[in-house]
Amino acid sequence: MQYLVSVIEQFLPGGVREDETGSATADEMAAINAFNDGLQSEGHWVFAGGLAAPDTATVIDNRSGEALFTDGPFVESKEHLGGFWIIEAADLDVALKLAAEASKACNRKVEVRPFL
């Protein structure tokens, strides 16, 4: 069973990123690396990655067959997806335990969602 662990990036009023660089601090990065090593050695690792700031996003709509490109994030929000893990876990209890470690490591809120 696979779960998506999304990292929730908080924004200050006015759309300013709490952390201007948008990336994790050196301490956070070290904790994330240690957590990732654990995921790999325990067989929970599928994939993970951090994302650039939402204002680097481009929205594409090709439902009509004529691709339309729009600058910026799809939704304006105080919270954005900052990165994610895809983990392999036997059930939600295992996933929640790993997600709790992930939240600690990256020092942000995370959300767990099962894949279909």
Binding site: D91, L92, L116
Partner: peptide
């Protein structure tokens, strides 16, 4: 069902 919440008594530490 979808998130696979387990059907078991939690382990001793939980």
């Amino acid at each position: 069902k979808a998130a696979r919440i387990p059907y078991r008594v939690p382990s001793a530490d939980d």
